[in-house]
Amino acid sequence: MSASSENTGFRDTGSWAGPELVQALRERFGEGLRAQSEAFGEQEITIRREILPALARCLRDEHGFEMLLDLCGVDHLGQREERFEVVYHFYGLAANRRLRVCVPLSGDQPELPTLCGLWKAADWYEREAWDLYGIRFAGHPDPRRLLLYDAFVGHPLRKDYKMKARQPLIGPGSRHEEDASHV
């Protein structure tokens, strides 16, 4: 238990992986690890997209990160050269520790390999990231939108999505429905 959790009475929510784990990963993946940073005691690594499946498997099988806590997209339009980023949070139950992994993606058609084979939890997270950011996950078993509907045009959390854009109406009597009935 850390000192702060004793003071505030909050439940101990675990610690973050230490620099030694990052060191071990660096030895294993070398250049694949692009950067490492630490803020407020939270370890974060930035990796090349090519090593993601191998790194994820290594974290799960060798370092005890059994859980994929979170997966989300980020759009750095106009701020970074590589526009998109996918952020993974991993959690090790036995050691009660976390690690954040960032994967920058460039281009207008960003794509990553799916992690559905390693964690079932990746399924809906990846569909959500596809739905809202248009980030594709190659090999996903069911790559549909998660929150929005099929007739939706575009990906609304992208920073270049027009704020006043209007979407087609769906449902009985709408043009979309009539179009579909002709098909």
Partner: peptide, 10 residues
């Protein structure tokens, strides 16, 4: 919402 609209119409 857009997704609720078909229900309301129905």
């Amino acid at each position: 919402t857009h997704k609720m609209a078909p229900v309301l119409k129905q």
